[in-house]
Computed example of a mutant assay.
Amino acid sequence: MIVDTHLHVIDQTALGYPWLDGVPPLNRNFSYDDYAREARRVGIEATLHMEVDVAEDQIEAETAHVGDLAEQPDSLIIGAIAACRPESEGFAAYLERQQANPLVKGFRRVLHVMPDELSESELFRGNIARLSGTRFTFDLCVLPRQLPKAMALTDLAPDVQFILDHCGVPDIKGDATEPWRTHMAEIAKRPNVAAKISGVVAYADPESWTVETLRPWVEHTVNCFGWDRVVWGSDWPVCTLGGGLSTWVGATQVLFAGASETERAKLYSGNARRIWGLGR
C-alpha cells in the first residue's frame, strides 16, 4: 500500500489559481473524488495534500478547504503541506497560527518559477530558520541550477526536515544530466534532506517516454539519498500531463521491481509515516 505525499486538488469554484492561465491542460477542476476513486484502485491508502500555489490572500482558505475534504468519511487525506510566504513580514504570525492546526504537517514555497534572489533575502532565510524546533517540514521545489540555493536554505536549519520535490525537477526530455546529477549528489550529503520520487513523468516527452527513460533519473536520486530518505508522490493532476496516476503507479512498480520488500515498504509508506508522524 502507498502513502501519496503529493496530491493537488484544484477547485476553481472555491479558490483562485493565477498560474493556471499559463497551463491550459490543467486549467480546470480536478476534484478529490476523482483522485480518490483512481487512487484506491491502485493501492493508495492515504495522502498528503500539497498546496497548489493559490492566490496569496487565499492561502489559509486553501488549508481550510483541504480540512473539509479530510473530514469526509473515509477520506484518504491525512495531512496538508500548506503554502507560505517566507519573504513576508507576516510569516511569524502565520506560522504561529498553523501550529494550532494538526492537519498542517509542513510548508512549501514554490521557488522554481520565482527569481533566484527570492530565497536569498535575509527575511526569507530568517523565516525558514523559524521552522527549527517545530514539527513542520519544508518542501523544496527548485530547478537543477537552483539546487545550490536550496542547499543554503537546508544549512540554515539543520534540525528541520526538508523534502526535495520531484527528484530535483530534472529536464528529462532535454536529457540535461548536468548540473542536475552533480547537484543531487551534493544536496544528498545533507542528512536533513529527503527526496520525493514524483513528477518525473511530466518532465519526460509525453509521447515517447518509457520506464527506461525514467530509470536513470529515479535510480540516481535513490542512490544519492538512500532508502531511508526517499518518499513517493503522485503529483496528481500534474502527472496527467505524462500519462496519469495509474500509469505513474505502474511505472513505479516496474522501476522498483528489483528492490527488496523492505526497501519498497520504506519508499511507498514507511518513510512518509516516520517523517510526518502519520497515524494511518
Results as ranks from 00 to 15, higher is better:
10 I>P: 02
98 Q>A: 00
26 L>G: 11
5 T>L: 06
277 G>I: 08
88 S>P: 10
69 L>R: 11
182 T>C: 06
56 E>S: 15
166 H>S: 03
129 A>W: 04
111 L>D: 08
76 L>Y: 12
115 P>C: 07
86 P>I: 08
26 L>W: 13
17 Y>L: 10
103 L>C: 11
113 V>R: 11
211 V>D: 13
278 L>F: 07
79 G>T: 13
44 I>Y: 02
239 C>F: 04
270 G>I: 12
111 L>P: 02
183 H>T: 02
198 S>W: 01
141 C>A: 13
191 P>N: 03
91 F>S: 02
216 P>S: 04
221 T>I: 08
163 I>V: 10
122 E>Y: 07
191 P>M: 06
119 S>C: 12
37 R>Q: 15
22 G>T: 13
67 G>C: 13
120 E>M: 11
55 A>P: 00
11 D>S: 08
4 D>F: 02
266 K>G: 00
262 T>I: 11
230 V>A: 12
55 A>L: 13
107 F>P: 02
276 W>K: 09
172 I>L: 01
249 V>C: 03
270 G>P: 12
165 D>F: 05
42 V>E: 07
124 F>L: 06
159 D>M: 01
40 R>I: 10
4 D>Y: 02
137 T>Q: 01
100 A>C: 06
29 N>S: 14
13 T>W: 00
280 R>T: 15
181 R>L: 09
79 G>R: 11
15 L>Q: 08
98 Q>I: 00
138 F>E: 06
43 G>K: 06
121 S>Y: 09
83 A>D: 14
187 I>N: 00
81 I>V: 15
161 Q>L: 07
129 A>E: 04
257 A>W: 01
134 T>R: 07
97 R>I: 09
183 H>Y: 09
73 P>F: 11
231 V>Q: 05
200 V>Y: 04
133 G>P: 08
277 G>K: 04
77 I>L: 11
210 T>Y: 08
93 A>C: 07
279 G>W: 01
228 D>A: 10
241 L>K: 03
141 C>P: 04
15 L>K: 10
45 E>R: 14
279 G>R: 15
197 I>E: 05
41 R>K: 15
121 S>L: 05
271 N>K: 08
250 G>R: 05
138 F>N: 04
274 R>F: 10
225 F>C: 08
255 L>S: 13
23 V>A: 00
259 A>G: 05
264 R>V: 11
265 A>F: 09
120 E>H: 12
92 A>I: 09
202 A>V: 04
43 G>C: 06
161 Q>M: 09
138 F>Q: 03
65 H>N: 05
266 K>M: 13
59 I>L: 15
30 F>C: 12
52 V>G: 15
243 G>S: 05
264 R>N: 15
84 C>V: 10
73 P>K: 14
22 G>Y: 11
12 Q>P: 00
40 R>K: 14
188 A>F: 03
170 P>G: 03
175 D>Q: 14
112 H>A: 12
126 G>F: 05
200 V>K: 04
3 V>F: 00
220 H>W: 10
126 G>K: 02
16 G>H: 14
231 V>N: 00
196 K>T: 06
6 H>P: 03
168 G>E: 00
233 G>D: 02
248 W>D: 02
201 V>M: 05
41 R>C: 08
3 V>Y: 01
179 P>H: 04
117 E>S: 14
148 P>E: 06
169 V>H: 03
